[in-house]
């Protein structure tokens, strides 16, 4: 099968970009990310990752896939399986019929990842575009070149247990109604993302940042748990997906594309402004990293102050962006 792999910064947006391009839709990674309104912040203290609260810088897993369906008038089929054997047989049948198939997997069980980059994250997306002998031919967008994976290893990655267990999830398009992206779809996606970031929900968007800042503010500096939470914040930001700042940079690239697509030249200025905000996230991560490494004294209120600054910048940014798109 002829399939063109393209490297991406983030798995789900990269998978959708590659899969849609395979089906004739001109879709960059940043357009896939922005059109599905995937930029987010969420502080979810009731969901634990390694004993620490989940902190997310993008929308929920699968939301990029599902968020692209309406703008493209597309229908995708999603299938999960009770047994690994059934999941494997279904994947093989789809490949034999010529489908390129998306999978949700665990990073930890994919042997082509360098050992020091593997961790228990169950929502890693990749595409399978063929099978040769016992090897699946894989387009994993976070790798520069296509890779191969033995069937037993891929099966283990598809049926990993734990939070966000993939249950063998596979997906593929059944129909794609339109191959172009309309200005109206771009504007609607930007409005949706503005609403999400400014939502009156304490754990989401800029309010979620402030809730986490309040939690940090109260942490005692000399408690080991304080350093552990700060370390967790920076790891969630730098190791999941493409980094918290990375998602801001992807959205900035989307705004640059959107300026032309939605015929709103002012969006170029917003792209530059969001890139500066992304630099602020990296500055926050750098300060947190220095504390975790013992290169600065642990100072939770200082991280809280940086987080509040980010919240203020993003609140002003999304209010202005909403006005620009509504106007």
């Amino acid at each position: 099968m002829s399939f063109q792999h393209r490297h991406a910064a983030h798995c789900e947006s990269g998978v959708m970009s590659n899969l849609l391009r395979h089906h004739g839709v001109q879709m960059s990674e940043s357009l896939a990310f922005g059109l599905s309104a995937a930029l987010a912040f969420a502080y979810l203290p009731f969901i634990k990752v390694s004993g620490q609260p989940l902190i997310a810088y993008r929308s929920l897993p699968r939301s990029i896939i599902k968020g692209l369906l309406a703008p493209l008038a597309a229908r995708f089929r999603f299938e999960t399986f009770r047994s690994p054997l059934a999941g494997e047989q279904r994947l093989d049948a789809l490949l034999a019929s010529g489908q390129v198939v998306g999978l949700q997997t665990s990073v930890y069980w994919l042997p082509y990842f360098p050992p020091d980059m593997r961790f228990h994250f169950n929502a890693h997306n990749l595409l399978v575009y063929g099978k040769e002998g016992d090897d699946y031919l894989i387009s994993d967008p976070v790798f520069e070149e296509p890779v191969r994976c033995a069937s037993a290893d891929l099966l283990r990655a598809r049926f990993a247990k734990g939070v966000l267990a993939p249950k063998g999830l596979l997906y593929y398009p059944q129909s794609i109604g339109r191959k172009d992206v309309t200005p109206a779809a771009v504007r609607a996606a930007i409005r949706k993302n503005c609403r999400m970031m400014l939502a009156p929900v304490p754990i989401a968007g800029v309010r979620g940042m402030r809730l986490l800042a309040n939690k940090l503010q109260r942490l005692p500096p000399n408690d080991a748990n304080s350093a552990a939470l700060i370390g967790h914040i920076v790891r969630m930001q730098e190791e999941i997906g493409t980094g918290g700042a990375g998602f801001r940079f992807i959205y900035a690239a989307f705004l640059q594309e959107a300026a032309e697509l939605a015929q709103l030249p002012s969006l170029s200025g917003f792209a530059e402004r969001l890139t500066t905000i992304g630099d602020g996230w990296r500055g926050l991560a750098l300060k947190a990293a220095r504390m975790v490494k013992g290169r600065e004294s642990v100072d939770p209120p200082a991280i809280a102050a940086k987080l509040r600054e980010q919240a203020a910048n993003e609140e002003a940014f999304f209010r202005d962006l909403k006005l620009a798109v509504d106007g």
């Binding site: 910064a9 730098e238 990375g246 940079f249 630099d279 500055g283 750098l286 975790v292």
Partner: peptide
């Protein structure tokens, strides 16, 4: 990964090259 972040920030400052993706 924390060292990588520090190095990437130093590179941005010294060479003006923004390394936007942690991977």
């Amino acid at each position: 990964s924390l060292d990588a972040l520090q190095v990437s920030m130093a590179i941005q400052e010294r060479f003006g090259v923004r390394m936007t993706d942690s991977k």
